[in-house]
Amino acid sequence: MKYLMLSCREATRLTEKKLTVGKLSFWGNLQLAMHIRMCDRCQRYAGQSAVIEKALHRQFEAKDETTQNLDEPKIELSEFFREQLLQRLDNGEEHKSG
């Protein structure tokens, strides 16, 4: 029985591993399920962690179009930058890759 019991620290670790790697070993799954059944905090953690995961997905995936942070004043590209860029494009400057 002792071998089945995870600490909260290990349980949160497995929670993240499951989210990141997608699956756990048979034992890992069983251990995590047992711990979470008995531990309110880790149960909460697992739920909140999944919410954060979703929120991060939204933040970086769906937001290619939206850009502005509403609280902050908009910073514009400088004319200098634009001119330089156009000049570099005009010169057919090669893009350094890597």
């Binding site: 909140q48 919410v51 929120a55 939204r58 509403l70």
Partner: peptide, 22 residues
């Protein structure tokens, strides 16, 4: 971890939440 009052759906749709996350 404490109980979070808001439902996940509300959180994910709240732009202020995404600013705090940022």
């Amino acid at each position: 971890p404490a109980e979070w009052d808001d439902s996940p759906v509300n959180l994910l749709d709240d732009p202020n939440f995404s600013h705090v996350l940022e």
